[in-house]
Write a protein that binds this DNA or RNA. Sequence first.
DNA 1: CCAAAACGGAACGCTGACGTTCCATTTCTG
DNA 2: CAGAAATGGAACGTCAGCGTTCCGTTTTGG
Lengths: 180, 180
Amino acid sequence: MERTRSAILAAAASVLARDRAATLPQIAAAAGVGRTTVHRYYPDRDTLIKAAVEDSAQVIGEAVTEARLDEGTPVEALHRLVTAYLSVGDRLVFLFNDPHVMRDYGVDQPDGPPPGDPVLDLIERGQAEGVFDDQSTATWIQHVLWALVYTGIDEVNKGTVSRHGVAATVIRTLERGILT
Amino acid sequence: MERTRSAILAAAASVLARDRAATLPQIAAAAGVGRTTVHRYYPDRDTLIKAAVEDSAQVIGEAVTEARLDEGTPVEALHRLVTAYLSVGDRLVFLFNDPHVMRDYGVDQPDGPPPGDPVLDLIERGQAEGVFDDQSTATWIQHVLWALVYTGIDEVNKGTVSRHGVAATVIRTLERGILT
DNA sequence: CCAAAACGGAACGCTGACGTTCCATTTCTG
DNA sequence: CAGAAATGGAACGTCAGCGTTCCGTTTTGG
């Protein structure tokens, strides 16, 4: 069943995001599936993780594509990007929070989205138009963006901030910093 | 020998910061010591990690204390704090990057410094004086601070940013965000 | 210089997670 | 409804890392 396959991949991403040493039975349970069934789809742990990595990368890629970063002002596009990232929070944390995941199982660069990344394009466009800080490198801004999104996800998971208001908080801090 | 003890603790923090699943022989090797010797000081893995946690917490605590956060303007104090945090980067990453570490081995709160934290005091003072954003909670600002410090440490470890200039970059982004 | 302490290597048993196989049961599908 | 496919439980061997013991070697300190 194809439904089982995606349930396993989603569960793997979700569980491994919270605990990268999660055991295989834990993943199976989270997917509502027996350990045997997991092995039927993915012979060994490495195969499973690699498949989950690719699945997550695709889901994130689609979310970013739908954000249409090349349209509108850079600030508007940035808003859509943050919202898109937050909507796939679990997958983001799974893929990029532990450098080892992408380094060991990723198909492309050790960390961060692949080259030709629309996110980097957006940042560079914003810098070229003079609205994004160009004292910082585009890479730095990109990493700051991720860091704030991660922080927002943590807050939501912890209940400190509502899932509804987190995007606004992340964007405000990202744009203006913490000074008044 | 007391020198051996601190070498083991420092190695544990450093190695576990980079790979939380690091094996015990790896830690011993990083400390320049045999596995047997590690066991002589710390009977089992849990004891070792707990000791490393307490050691790191103390080192970080001293660094923060030396930053004298209650002196000068909040912005000045914030600069000193960022510098202090960056100077103990490895230990910070070890303690707080993986929520499980403090949850399983920490003596106080599951994450972040203990209550009565001078850092929170500083943030609240800055908000009261009207220089720090008070649309955000103090906790949010604190977590953003950590996130940017972590990001700065990553960049340094990766060679993207010089160890010398990273404090200025972190502070600039923290204060003004990424817009011009 | 010599005894005592510290160290490191080797070997052993133990445990938890993994990967495999077998088979009974449930769920599709024609 | 009947055969085929998918599922999940149980049991087994394997293996890596842990914790322990023993003993020879190095370092410390009087």
